[in-house]
Each structure stands twice: as structure tokens, then as C-alpha cells.
Write a protein that binds this DNA or RNA. Sequence first.
DNA 1: AGACTGCCTG
DNA 2: CAGGCAGTCT
Length: 696
Amino acid sequence: MFDSCISRNSDSVTCESEAAFLLRMNLSHPDQNMHSSSEGCLEDDKPDVMLPCFRRNMYDEPLASYSNGSIISQLLRKTIHNKRALDDSHFYLSSSTAVDSSQEDQSSVSSKDSTVEAASPTGHVSTAASPEREHPMTDHLQAKRARVENIIRVMAGSPNSRQHGDSERSDTDARDNREAREAYRENKRKQRLPQHQEHSVGGPTNRRPASSSSENSNTKDEECHKLKEQLHSMQRLLRQLQEKFLQVYNQEDPENRGETEVAVEHDTLGESIASHYISTEDDFERKNSRVTAECKDQMKVVGFLVHQRESQNLKETLKQELSRAVNDCVDRVFKKVSSTGLDPSPQQRMCSSPEMQISLGADRKSQQAGSIQEQPQAEEAAVKPRSLEYYESSEAQSPQDQTEALSLVVRKPSVTPLSSVNPTVKRPYPVHQTPFQFNYSTPLHDSQILEHLLKYGPHSNFGGLPCMPPSMDRTSPDSVDLPWDTIAMRSKVTSSHLGHHARSSALGAVTVDSLCLPHVKIECGELQSMAERNPYMSLNIQEGLTPSHLKKAKLMFFYTRYPSSNVLKTFFPDVKFNRCITSQLIKWFSNFREFYYIQMEKFARQAIVDGISDVKDITVSRDSELFRALNMHYNKANDFHVPDRFLEVAEITLHEFYNAISAAKDSDPSWKKAIYKVICKLDSDVPEDFKTSSYL
DNA sequence: AGACTGCCTG
DNA sequence: CAGGCAGTCT
């Protein structure tokens, strides 16, 4: 599950961690800090300063080290000791005694050894000590509990964890944190100007910030892209965290006291978050101290509510927090994008496509929800069980989803306007002979695209789509002006080289037959009328011969060398027969016979050259070179058991050729006709199984 | 005339 | 494998 995340884990983790931090800030300042929060994710260097452990882990450790525990586990382990420090800070007020000089390394190692990390000294806050030093947490369940609690804190962006996480750091780390905060403030200052203007003007969109410089505008596209990428990473990580938490939570013994405590603490956490929602506190340090006091209050409530909460409550609350975090980030990103007034990104320029409109609709929906929850009443809204819809909306508006949908949409217009690109050549056939299949290609196309999407996903290649050969574009029914070159080109692709595309377009095959076979062109009008009578033909009826049909015909050749039209119609029930198709099928068998007889003549002559005097010495078995040649031609995949009768017929044919050549009958130009007459009588019945489409 | 076939060619 | 053509048959 995390494999896909590993490639961008550094961004994801750092951004996620910072997102929790920024989310907290946003909760405190729903109006002003929203953009700064999203902007904060853009700071590449900031994660380094703030959470060097993550950065180091991501870069210094081989990815294999995460194959098992996953990044989430690392993150959880990292935050677990913060939680412990938080819990214990209410009971222990000891000062840090074991200040590790190599604090950054300690932090990086902390993910590997939580015990060592728990021994990490306190930072500038100097309130947290590590009781695990004296009382090592040997209870596995307790560790789980702490992990879960910290998940909640990280996800909800609780200041508690952050604060105490900072408090555990050394002076050097604290210095880094100070730098980080300064950088954060600086970033906030930088962004406030446009934001203030935005709010003062009252129009969040299409307003060029007064502070925007040319350099700024040049990098906005890039920033927007980065924002989206980081947002996507955060969304993924949030989902993963949620899953991880639920997994850990479900493993908890219902009888375990840790469960209830976790639930209770989470509820109190929700209250804390709610209080921060309406907070206008702007100063980081002040909030830290305030949060510390709040934590103490929370702990008092813990014992009071221990037995009143149920697991479902925790689940719902956690889902809410997760969903809200994602949606907040989404809202910020898109508001940021819209407020910058920059030109629509390449993705945004595709808004004309329905898919993109859908995505934008989801965005708008999310933004509305986000604006609601940014209001002071968000405290109440945060408790509402709305996790599912939020989660779904966040998924629907995933940048990745947008991109994928767009990539599909882009392909259509890029291929469709053929008539405007290619030089128009007068078609050799009257207008009414327009390829009729376009009349019903549209519903076929759409439904199959949908099926294709559902089946293979949006990234799959549509070249394999039955009705979408590579060069087979969709054209409106009145594609009379379709250039002849285009049609001819398509005919080549769809008819001559159908073998490269499994079950390629029947439409294309019909086009071929109706346009390229001279003796068939008369049928075009009839075909068109037929199509007009039934423009929405059943998808089960092939309008042309596919490579599967060809394969089936080859297999049928093992039974019948001279199939009649009725036989063909009987054994190709899924083919809409017309003279075009019939002629093509007959031509196929003619070609099969041609190859067959050529091989027979060749091997008969070879037998004569080899000095075989008695025709009885010529046999055809499955080991014969002749059979291998034939089998390679008609049963290339070798997935069909050739009937013995075919071997007999082949042997007879070889004997006939041998005798004729031995008798010097080959001097007669029509000496083969006698052989053909013999062979045509040796046809056997084709098995009934061929009548079904299972051989396709 | 149309259907069917085979031969030649690409 | 298909196009083109010619031949045969009905």
C-alpha cells in the first residue's frame, strides 16, 4: 500500500507533518492563515528545519527499511514519544537531564528506537521529561495506545503534540525550531499583504496581489503545481494514516483500558481543536503555553469520561478530523490558486471537458463546505458525523483524479478534428456511402469507454478498446467531409493490421470493406440503409471481421478447406454478414488453401527430391515438418488441438501432389485442379463449439 | 450477371 | 492477408 507513496515519501511526510502544524494554525486563524498554511507547504527548506528527522529518514535511509514498517509507522513512532511526554508532563515536571548533543541524529534515530527517542531531552519549553526512562513502557498495548493517541494529534494538528515534540528537542533543535518559526512568520508576513488586499477588496478571485512581482507571477504556476502535488501527497497520507489508525485500533482488545482512554482523550482533543477553531491567537509561543494548560484540563476530563465513550465515537471523530484536514488543505490550495489570479494552469484550461467540470464541481462543493467549517460554528460542525461525504469529496477532487480524467479527455479532441487537419480529398464514392458505422459508433464508443475505464482504469491505453483502434477516431454521423486519405489510412490500420489489436474495431473493418474492396462498394448503400434502420445495433453483433474471427477461421480450416457461405454464416453468428464480409471470409479461406497447397507442393517435391519412391512412405504426423509449418500458420498460438482428420487430409493431399508430380502432370497449367477436386471432398464438419463466440 | 475460385502480386 | 484479375459455373 505504501509502495506508491515511497517514491514521494519525503514530500509527503514532511508536508504532512507540516500540514498538521499548519492546520493548527489555520484552525486558530480561520481567515487569515488559510493561505499562509497552504503556502507553508511550499517551503521546501522548512521541513528540514522543523522536522529533520523525517527528512533524514527519507533521504538517508534506504527505502527498503520502510518496506515493512512503512513511513506511517515511522511517523507514528516518532510522534508516540511526543505523546508520552505530553501525558507525563502533567505529572512530571522534571527538568531535562540527558540533553543529547547530537539531537538531530537523535531525532532521526528516534524512528528506529522509540525508547532512545523517549529519552530525548527537553527543548526550550523544558516541561517534558521522559518517564519511560525510569519506567520503560514494556506493555505493547500501551505502546499501541500511545501511538494511536499521537496519530490523533498529528492528524488533527493538535498544538499539544507539536509543542511537546518541540519541547523534547535539544537546544540545537530548538534553535532550528526558532528558525522555523521565524521563517514561518516571515512567510506569513509575505503572504499577508495579498491576502489582506484580497479580503479588503472582497474579491478573492482574479485579483492580482499588490505585492506580486514579475518573479512572483513567473513562479506561480510552479507553486500551484507544487501545491497540488503536496496536497495530493497529504491526502494520500491522511488516508493511509486513517487506515493505519483504524487497523491499530481494531487490534486493540476491547477490554483494554487503553481503548477507552484513547477514545476519551480523542474527544477531549476534539474539544481542544474546537476551541482552537475560534481562537484568534496568533502568537506561536503564547499558544504553546495555552495549549499546555488545555492539556492539563483535558487530562482531568479523561478520568471523568472514561467509561462513557464507545469505539464508534472515536472512529467517527477521527474520520471527521481526517476528512476535515484533507478538505481544509484542499480549500486552501484552491483558494490560493484562485486568489493569485494567475492564468489557468494547463489542467485548468481543460475545463471545457465534462470530466474537468465534474472535478471542479467537486471542488466548489468542497470549498463551500470548507467555508462553512471555517466559520465560528465550525466547532459544532466538527462534531457532526459527516466524515463520509467529506472523505468522498476529497477523493473526488483529488488532483490525481483530475489529471487522469483530463488525460483521457485530451485524447479525444486531439484525434477528432481530422477533417480539419488532413487535406480534404474528394472521396471516390457518393456522399451517401459515408461510412455508416459512425451513426452508431457514438453510443458504442461511450459505453465501451466507460466499461474500459471501469475495467482498466483511466491510465490504460485506449488502443485496445474494441471500438477504438489507434487511428480510429470518433466522428460525427455527418462526417461526409471526412478526407479520403483518412479513411484509407484507417482502412489500412483496421483491416490490414488488425492483428495487432485484439478484437479491434468492427467498424473499421466495415469501413475497409465498404471502401476498399471495389467489388463490394455497391453494398455500401445497402449497408448504410441497414445501419440507418438499426443505428444502435447490438454490441454482440460484429460489423466486421476481427482478428479473433481470423483466428477462428484458421482453426476452422483444420476441418473444412472449402466452407460454403452458409457454413461461414453458421459459424460466425456474431458477424453481421453482408457480401463484403462474406467475400472477405471466402477470401480468407482461399488464402488458407493457397498456403496449404503451396506447402503440399513444396513437401511433395521435396519428397521426390529426397528419393522417396513409394507414396506410402510419405506420411504426415504431428512431428512432421509439414505439419509444423501448417500448424504454425493456422494455429500459431498452438493452443488448439489439431484434429487427426486434418493430418489424414494433409497426408492425402501430399500423396496427390506427389503422384501428380511424379506423373509429370505438373506440366499441365491446371494440373492442380484435379487435386483440388479431391481435397474439397474431404471436408469434415466443423464442431459445434465453433458456433459459439467462445473461440473469439 | 453474380457467385465462387485460383493465380499473381504487393 | 488483401487487391486485382481472369476463369468457371449456374
